[in-house]
Design a protein around this nucleic acid. Structure first.
Length: 260
DNA sequence: CCTATCTCCTGTAGGC
DNA sequence: TGCCTACAGGAGATAG
């Protein structure tokens, strides 16, 4: 669920709040991640001074003074909060008298994982229409699956890929290589725009508590969503269709009127 | 290399 | 009401 804008929202909040502070304790509470944090990662955090938080795609990176960085991934249900309790706290860091807690009910979150090879950041110049055309060329996979492939573009998940395709007027099931030049140009611009807006609005909080920032504040991107989680198109009002499980086994909503 | 499918997990939503 | 199943979706593994 957390995609680039949500992770960036978390990054900004943590960076503003905790940069320059020192981790005085690491407390493992429910050490039942699907992939357990390597002991070395938790050891690296203990006593470390936080140089700041950075982000690559959906990965959040704690930069430590004089030590290797520690990479976090929120998976589907991971949350980082300053204060704030829940039954799903996996571990917590004491930082400058505050508790930074990693909550994760579904346990797909990761800590201390290696940063995999990722495509370009969609909000940076390396991602443009020419790049998108290049990676879609000749591909028979659905364009939505390609948008969500982190090795090609870093940071899009189901929500923002769905919204970008709608904004560009392209159906999610189209083969990547079938897009005309004008379509891939619109799609590249749409990817940038929905992500930029998502960051500006602090992420998408679709149902009550799906995403909250580290201080418990919801985002506002859900107010601007045209397709994802809706019954009718936010632009024209037409009933939306769902290709159902045909794209990566995920729901893929689209507007049959606005998208070709 | 490319594509499609399966798996991990658990809270929630829907069906009967 | 209560039980049961399907589903949600990140990413990685795997089969073809």
């Amino acid at each position: 669920m957390p995609e680039l804008p949500e992770v960036e929202t978390v990054r900004r909040a943590l960076d503003a709040r905790l940069r320059g502070r020192t981790v005085s304790a690491v407390l493992v509470r429910r050490p039942t991640f699907y992939r357990r944090p390597p002991a070395a990662a938790l050891r690296a955090l203990e006593g470390a001074t936080l140089r700041g938080f950075s982000r690559r795609g959906k990965y959040l990176i704690a930069e430590l003074e004089g030590r290797p960085s520690v990479v976090f991934h929120l998976g589907m249900s991971g949350r980082l909060t300053v204060g704030g309790e829940s039954p799903h706290v996996r571990f917590e860091l004491t930082v400058g008298g505050e508790s930074l807690r990693f909550h994760d009910s579904r346990r797909f979150g990761r800590v201390g994982c290696p940063l995999p090879a990722l495509g370009p950041e969609p909000l940076e110049p390396a991602f443009d229409a020419a790049y998108l055309r290049k990676v879609l060329r000749g591909r028979s996979a659905p364009v939505k699956a390609l948008l969500m492939d982190q090795r090609l573009i870093a940071g899009l998940g189901n929500i923002y890929a769905t919204e970008a395709l709608h904004a560009a007027g392209v159906r999610p099931g189209r083969a990547g290589g079938s897009l005309r030049r004008a379509e891939s140009e619109r799609l590249a611009a749409a990817c940038r725009e929905v992500l930029r807006l998502g960051v500006e609005l602090g992420g998408a909080t679709l149902d009550d508590e799906s995403f909250l920032d580290p201080l418990g504040r919801p985002g506002r991107m859900q107010e601007r969503v045209r397709v994802y989680g809706r019954d009718a198109c936010g632009d024209c009002g037409a009933p939306l269709l769902d290709t159902r499980r045909s794209i990566g086994g995920r729901a893929s909503l689209y507007c049959p009127s606005c998208q070709r």
